[in-house]
Each structure stands twice: as C-alpha cells, then as structure tokens.
Amino acid sequence: MSRVTLQVNGKQVSVVVEPRTLLVELLRDKLQLTGTHVGCDTSHCGACVVHVGGRSVKSCTMLAVEADGATVTTIEGLAQGGKLHPMQESFHQHHALQCGFCTPGMIMSAIELVETRPHADEHETREWLEGNFCRCTGYHNIVKAILSCRDAMREKSA
C-alpha cells in the first residue's frame, strides 16, 4: 500500500492505494469523481482524459502513485463558481454530445488543444482527437464546438 497526496480540482487529498491502482481508479473509486470514464483497456478511447499538471493525460494509463504531488483537474473541476468553462459551453451550444460518455475526455483534450495550439485549424483539430473516440456524434459537432471555442478564446486574449 502507498500513500498518494495530490491536489484534485483545487483540493488537497491524501489516500492510501495499492501500487497497481490506476489514476482513473483513484479518481472514480476513491474520490467518487465519476465524470472521468473508462471506455477501453488499451489506452485508445480517451474517455478517461484528465489534466495532470495542466497537460491532458489518459488517466487509465497512469498509476496513481505517479500522480503523487501532482495537480489534477477533472471534468468536475472545470466550471468555476457555477460558471461553465467556455469549452463546456461550446459543446452545449453546438450539440457536440449525445450519450455524453466520451464528453468529459473530449472536453479535457480539447482544452489542452486550444490552450497550447491556439491556431489549430480543422485538420489539426481532427488529428488532435486521434486518441478520443466518439461513437455518437460523427465528430462533426465536436470539431465545430472546438473551433468555435478556439475563436472565442482567441478573441478574448486579443
């Protein structure tokens, strides 16, 4: 057993886990942050994407102990004071989700894209989503939502 101390959605937490525990298991099972999903066992689907130290990470692919000392943001930590993150709002406005299962991972991935590559075009956006599967939306409205959010965020920072 190992003790892991980390900051999750702005709160300091400290839990004892087995060494084999994955970050996604820590989030879902220990912290009841069930917004982060598990859609595969081969690190392909991206339903589990969270931010660790500001970068998107597949939380099914990282051990909980590796996140010791890290700052983690999950889908539950995005909205601030009841105000949605612009990416969440954009997904809503563009109907970029249907069953919602891929959505948390998609949003977390998309946020890193627009933050790190503010000039990403449609092509780059689609390539960026390589590791995020959606079976419902045909990706059409997801890409629309991301591009629209990118424009809004660019305008704001201009």
Partner: peptide, 21 residues
C-alpha cells in the same frame, strides 16, 4: 433548442451504471 440533458454530461454529473455504488 440546445439540449437540457447536456448540463449533467458536460460537468461530469452524468450517472451511468458503473458510477453507481
């Protein structure tokens, strides 16, 4: 009309079977 069910899904508050304990 944008969907009213979106709110819970985009904030991680959806409740799927595996989320139930």
């Amino acid at each position: 009309i944008p969907r009213r069910e979106d709110r819970r899904f985009i904030t991680g508050a959806g409740r799927y079977v595996d989320d139930i304990v």
